[in-house]
């Protein structure tokens, strides 16, 4: 008799994180020859539509496993802002590895109540606008939707006007000219239909954001050994590699598609613009370091780990 676990996904089952990483994980666990675990999936927000509420939903026992965006709970997962620092990460793969290593070393607060099934990292946030952007100078004065404090600070330094807004309001706000641009990842552009209202993509790297599949730790520890083993077997390595492979590829495909689309312009910052970004990135990073007592140590540890990850 397998143990049944409820998995909550806040959005549609066609959303890319679900379709390309979580669903394959569910299928793999359910198909495991041990037959020890059966994951019952509740996508489409059937167990809760609010993404910020997912971590609490696990603690309340409404779901056993859930997809979580730690950036949305800046108090609950206070150290995760480190990934948002502009210029720290270069690609999705090293972001995932860094997240894994920091979790393994127990350097990120807020995870003690959870068993980490998957530790993903968004690709770099970039700027998607309804008005043309050819260079950094064009950003000045643009009203841009932001999704985090650090990224807000960065765009402010670049002369943009940050407007806090959940992703589901972006299309409406952009379509009606309430905002001119949004910072986000290519996948979200498609998932939330933002491609309808933007046509200018500026590949400005603005930091990344962690995403996680978490399980209630008490629930995990209460499971019989064979069930724990199945979960562990597909956790972190299996699901993260699936994510890196499929989401990395998907992200590259999307950018290629945007470039090929005659209705879109895709611009990468010039070397000169990239150089002039450095002082801005350093300033934002220094401000973040000054904000919390443990931030300096966390950042230096993260840089050390990154050096090692890049060397491999």
């Amino acid at each position: 008799e397998p143990v049944t676990l409820k998995l909550s996904f806040f959005a549609s089952d066609t959303e890319v994180n679900y379709a390309r990483a979580i669903k394959p994980w569910i299928d793999a666990v359910n198909a495991d020859p041990s037959g020890a675990v059966k994951i019952e999936a509740f996508p489409n927000g059937a167990l809760g539509k609010a993404l910020p509420a997912q971590p609490q939903l696990l603690l309340d026992g409404v779901a056993d496993i859930a997809f979580v965006n730690p950036s949305l709970g800046p108090g609950r997962f206070p150290d995760d802002q480190v990934f948002e620092l502009p210029g720290l990460l270069q690609n999705l793969k090293e972001g995932v590895k860094l997240y894994e290593e920091l979790l393994k070393a127990n350097l990120l607060r807020g995870y003690s109540d959870y068993y980490v099934v998957g530790a993903f990292m968004n690709p770099q946030y970039m700027v998607f606008a309804r008005r043309p952007i050819k260079s950094l100078a064009d950003l000045k004065g643009m009203k841009v939707r932001i999704n985090g404090a650090v990224i807000g600070q960065t765009v402010k330094e670049l002369g943009m006007v940050p407007v806090l807004m959940p992703p589901n309001e972006v299309v409406e706000a952009m379509g009606r000219g309430t905002i001119d641009a949004t910072t986000t990842v290519p996948a979200a552009i498609v998932d939330f239909g933002i491609d309808r209202v933007t046509s200018h993509d500026y590949l400005l790297p603005l930091g990344a954001g962690p995403l996680a599949v978490l399980m209630n730790r008490k629930k995990f520890e209460s499971l019989p050994k064979p069930a724990q083993d199945v979960i562990a077997k597909y956790s972190i390595r299996w699901i993260d590699d699936t994510y890196i492979r499929d989401l990395g590829q998907y992200n590259d495909e999307l950018i290629a598609k945007f470039k090929a689309d005659p209705k879109r312009t895709v611009v990468a910052p010039s070397p000169a613009d990239l150089a002039s970004l450095q002082p801005v990135y350093q300033k934002v990073t220094a401000e973040w370091v000054a904000k919390g007592p443990g931030n300096a140590e966390l950042l230096s540890k993260a840089r050390e780990l990154l050096t090692r990850i890049r060397a491999n």
Binding site: K6, G48, K49, A50, A53, Q56, L57, D60, G61, V62
Partner: peptide
Amino acid sequence: AFALQTNWASALTFLATEPSQ
């Protein structure tokens, strides 16, 4: 209905989480 399928403690949390939304 939710309590019968899972447990009362979890089901009762809806009385706060849903009104808050």
